[in-house]
Amino acid sequence: STLVRVAKSAGTLGIAIEGGANTRQPLPRIVTIQRGGSAHNCGQLKVGQVILEVNGVSMRGREHRDAARIIAEAFKTKERDHVDFLVTEFNVAL
């Protein structure tokens, strides 16, 4: 797995995710990266990567909306000027 630090360089994070607990994709997976968003500017996140942790918070066992809320809040908070993603290329189960 890889730790990717995304600086909040644009007004949006600019990723779409699918998956979460109790779906076919048990951990959130990046399905889109929008041009001009912070994630795109960072250059290290890629479509297909599975998100294991966000700012050290595990995505394991979290349903889709919970995972999405955690990512949205991590981007929104003014406590940090970046969001740390632990990602993997592999679709790890549980």
Binding site: G14, A16, Q25, F75
Partner: peptide, 16 residues
């Protein structure tokens, strides 16, 4: 395991 996973629903997609 494979058959069980196929019975799970697809996920919605959220833009962040």
């Amino acid at each position: 395991v494979r058959e069980k996973r196929l019975t799970l629903p697809p996920s919605e997609i959220t833009m962040l």
